[in-house]
C-alpha cells in the first residue's frame, strides 16, 4: 500500500521518546499514582494493558499534557506541544461538521493555510476510502454508527500526522474483521512513530506493540516492559503469540510476573 502518499513516514521529524514522571496523583481522594516513572521509547509502539479503571486513560492524558501534576520530557529535549495527536475513548466528533471536515478540523483550528487544507482534504478523502467510509465524506456524524464514528476519529488522529500518537482503545467499537483491518492500517501508517496504545485486549497489544506495559493496583504499579519480537502488525494466528496471550491473561488475572517471558 502506498503509505508515503498519505502520511510522511515517521511523521516528518524523528519521533522522540517520552519520559513521564508522576510524584503523586489523587483521584477521588485515593492515590492513583505515586512515584511513577514511565519511559516511552521513541519510534515504537508501546501498549498499556490493564483492567478497567486502573488509570490507563489518566496516564495517557498525562502524556498528552491534559492534566497537571506530571513532568513530561521528550528524549530530544524539545517541547512536546505541537507534536502529539490524541485519540480519546469517545470519538469527540463535532456533530455540526461533516465527516470530512471532522477529519481536517485540527488544521482548521490551527488556522492552516488554504493550500495545506486542500491537500489535507484530499488525503482525508483517500483515507476515508481506505477505512470503508468513502461514501460518508459529506455525512454528519449523527448518520454514522458507533463503529463508523470510531473509524472516523481514528482517521482524524492519523491525519494529524504527528510524530507522537496517543490512542485510547481506538478499536474497541469495531467488529472483529474491521478491527483487524484497521489495526493493520494503523500499524502501517504509524510505523516509525512513537505510539502509545491503551487497550484491554492482550491480543491487540501483542499484535501491535513493540513493548507491552501492564498496569495494576492502586497506587498503580508498572510491570517491567515486555518486549515483543518481530515486526507489527503480527499474525494473530501465530502460535507463539497465542501462547503469550494466554500467559498475559493469566498475569492480568493475578498470576506471576512476566518480564522475562519474551
Amino acid at each position: 500500500m502506498p503509505r508515503a502518499e498519505l502520511l510522511r513516514p515517521g511523521g516528518g521529524t524523528p519521533a522522540p521518546g517520552i519520559r513521564l514522571e508522576v510524584e503523586r496523583l489523587l483521584f477521588d481522594g485515593a492515590e492513583l499514582f505515586r512515584d511513577l516513572v514511565l519511559e516511552i521509547p521513541g519510534g515504537r509502539w508501546t501498549c498499556l494493558l490493564g483492567p478497567s479503571g486502573v488509570g490507563k486513560s489518566t496516564l495517557l492524558r498525562l502524556l498528552a499534557g491534559l492534566l497537571p501534576g506530571a513532568a513530561r520530557v521528550a528524549s530530544d529535549g524539545l517541547p512536546l506541544s505541537g507534536r502529539i495527536a490524541w485519540m480519546a475513548q469517545s470519538d469527540l466528533l463535532f456533530p455540526w461538521l461533516s465527516v470530512l471536515d471532522n477529519l481536517v478540523v485540527g488544521y482548521r483550528l490551527r488556522g492552516a493555510p488554504r493550500a495545506l487544507l486542500a491537500e489535507k482534504r484530499a488525503q482525508a478523502r483517500s483515507l476515508l476510502e481506505k477505512i470503508g467510509l468513502g461514501g460518508y465524506a459529506e455525512a454528519l456524524p449523527a448518520a454514522l454508527s458507533g463503529g463508523m464514528r470510531q473509524r472516523a476519529a481514528l482517521a482524524r488522529t492519523l491525519l494529524e500526522d504527528r510524530p507522537v500518537v496517543l490512542m485510547d482503545e481506538p478499536f474497541s467499537a469495531l467488529d472483529a474483521i474491521t478491527r483487524h483491518r484497521l489495526q493493520d492500517l494503523a500499524a502501517e501508517l504509524l510505523a516509525g512513530r512513537t505510539v502509545v496504545l491503551v487497550t484491554h485486549s492482550p491480543l491487540e497489544a501483542l499484535r501491535l506493540g513493540h513493548e507491552v506495559r501492564i498496569l495494576e493496583g492502586r497506587p498503580v504499579r508498572l510491570d517491567p516492559p515486555l518486549q515483543i519480537g518481530g515486526r507489527p502488525p503480527r499474525e494473530a494466528a501465530d502460535p507463539a503469540l497465542l501462547a503469550l496471550e494466554a500467559r498475559l491473561l493469566a498475569r492480568l488475572a493475578g498470576g506471576d510476573a512476566l518480564a522475562e517471558a519474551a
Binding site: 499534557g65 491534559l66 490524541w86 469527540l92 485540527g106 482548521r108 483550528l109 490551527r110
Partner: peptide, 17 residues
C-alpha cells in the same frame, strides 16, 4: 470538556476555539 481537550492537544488558536 472533551472537545476543548482535543482542541488543546491540536494546538488550536484561542480565537478558533
Amino acid at each position: 470538556e472533551g472537545w476543548l481537550e482535543l482542541a488543546r492537544v491540536m494546538d488550536a488558536r484561542p480565537l478558533a476555539i
